[in-house]
């Protein structure tokens, strides 16, 4: 366990110093500060718009950070030969990969925590939101974090056998598909009027593709008229779903990385 934690903490230390990530984070933070000024421009309720905008900024910034952070992680270690000094020590490849992954989500968590804190601060100071409203608001970033952990595991999986550029598009593409089209494929596979071939295709895609849309819980938070029935059970269910997928992707990544010539 010690090597995993050491690799993870070193990865965090490196990630929070990477200029490209800090620039993306800075842009996200700037937008969060600017967002209250833009909310008044909308015809809809200022609070509703501000909530949607801020959660959108956090989600988008986090997704970009998650992909940029993880697609280069393994290739960089190989290119810079740091992996050789580490793997020549009593460290197995699975420990290395898991350590890198935990470091990535640790750094991601810190950056998301910063953005979420700014959002909470803005609502507390400018919107005079009470504790229950703030707690309600905080649910979305927590779910986004699980979503980003899932996205990071997709990128880490691909990084064990494809180049960073290909990985960028693969992981990004899966995120977009899983976020936007998962409900579509689900409906298609369950619709009795769908042709059998299309049904099977939709079922396969829907099973293989992680359903990132499970974590897009912003609608009930933005619009109080929408609710999630049995909210606690839903959050628990999608968390287990996410952990299951993360586990599968990490095991797959380990199996490939274990056989890879580095």
């Amino acid at each position: 366990m010690k090597p995993i934690l050491s690799i993870a903490s070193t990865t965090i230390g490196e990630a929070i110093r990477r200029k490209v990530l800090l620039i993306i984070l800075l842009i996200g933070v700037l937008f969060l500060f600017v967002a209250p000024g833009l909310g008044v421009l909308s015809a809809r309720s200022e609070t509703t718009v501000l909530r949607g905008m801020m959660l959108g900024i956090i989600q988008l910034t986090s997704a970009v950070i998650a992909i940029v952070l993880t697609v280069y992680m393994i290739p960089n270690e190989i290119e810079r030969r740091t992996i050789y000094t580490i793997l020549s020590k009593p460290v197995t490849r699975w420990q290395f990969l898991v350590g890198k992954y935990l470091g990535a989500i640790g750094a991601l968590g810190m950056m998301m925590a910063l953005m979420s804190s700014i959002m909470i601060l803005v609502f507390w100071r400018l919107q005079s939101a009470d504790v229950s409203q703030l707690a309600d608001l905080a649910k979305a970033p927590v779910m986004y974090f699980i979503q980003m952990c899932l996205l990071a595991s997709v990128a880490i999986f691909f990084s064990t056998f494809v180049s960073p550029l290909v990985n960028f598009f693969l992981a990004g593409g899966m995120y977009l598909l899983g976020s936007l089209f998962s409900p579509f494929f689900q409906t298609l596979s369950e619709n009795p009027n769908t042709a059998q071939v299309a049904k099977i295709f939709a079922l396969v895609v829907n099973t293989i593709l992680p359903n990132f849309s499970n974590y897009n819980v912003q609608n009930p938070i933005i619009n109080p008229n929408q609710t999630i029935q049995n909210e606690g059970a839903y959050y628990l269910q999608v968390t287990i779903y996410g952990l299951f997928y993360i586990g599968i992707l990490l095991v797959g990544g380990i199996l490939i990385f274990d056989r890879r010539e580095v």
């Binding site: 230390g13 110093r17 740091t82 000094t85 020549s88």
Partner: peptide
């Protein structure tokens, strides 16, 4: 093992 032109975490 000391690799050729080793790189260590610069920070």
């Amino acid at each position: 093992y000391l690799p050729e032109r080793p790189y260590y975490y610069e920070h």
